[in-house]
């Protein structure tokens, strides 16, 4: 019988694969209803077994289960293409991209072996790590960065409910895909800002 964590993992992979569709210029020009139908059809295609596994399973084999942050940002990214409205203010996205980019630049080198300290270990239920995250989430809430607060809180909740295959909280907060995306967006924002002397960030 299929595990819940397999279902959530495959659903995340399906979301990631279909979310990229509206980025293609020919598809962006379609009506919203047609984009929605196309994405629905694509979701069925990538979830259906082709050969031994569905395409989503191959994608999951390569990039693993997606973090809550990635899933939330994918939904935020898809939403305007389907509804014509943003889900959250652009400033919220900018703030979380900056936080993810800075965290990833510190976290991944240490977690992959730079030095004896392994921050990934904190994700196995350290109450101090959880307290630090709570402080950060509360600070973001006070500062009205609600997307940051929501992503952190949903990640902690999903970890407590064993939503994904991983037992480590870090895997619910962050993954390499959202980290690469956030670093790219922040860097391109910086480049644009320098070029235009005060241009606005995209994320």
């Amino acid at each position: 019988m299929i595990n819940v964590t397999d279902l959530t993992g495959l659903a995340g992979a399906t979301l990631a694969l279909t979310a990229s569709l509206p980025l293609a210029p020919p598809i962006r020009r379609l009506k919203r209803i047609h984009i929605g139908m196309l994405m629905g059809a694509a979701a069925i295609v990538v979830s259906a077994p082709i050969g031994p596994l569905p395409l989503a399973a191959y994608a999951r084999g390569w990039f693993g289960d997606l973090s809550v942050t990635t899933n939330v940002l994918l939904v935020i990214g898809i939403f305007p293409h389907l509804s014509g409205r943003r889900l959250v203010d652009r400033g919220q996205e900018t703030a979380i991209c900056r936080l993810v980019a800075v965290t990833a630049l510190v976290f991944y080198p240490l977690a992959l072996g730079l030095g004896p300290f392994d921050p990934y270990r904190l994700g196995y239920g350290s109450p101090w790590f959880l307290t630090g995250l709570l402080t950060l989430a509360l600070g973001a809430w006070i500062g009205r960065f609600h997307l940051i607060t929501t992503c952190i809180a949903l990640a902690v909740l999903a970890h407590a409910m064993a939503w994904n295959e991983s037992t480590n909280l870090w895997d619910y907060l962050l993954d390499p895909l959202v980290s690469i995306y956030a670093i790219f967006v922040v860097l391109s924002g910086v480049v644009r800002a320098v070029a235009r002397s005060g241009g606005r960030d995209a994320c």
Partner: peptide, 22 residues
């Protein structure tokens, strides 16, 4: 414009539930 412009209380509830479980 964005759908969620308010919802400050909802975010606080999500935070409390999430960290309570955590």
């Amino acid at each position: 414009g964005p759908v969620f412009t308010r919802g400050r209380t909802l975010v606080l509830v999500i935070l409390l539930v999430g960290f309570g479980a955590g």
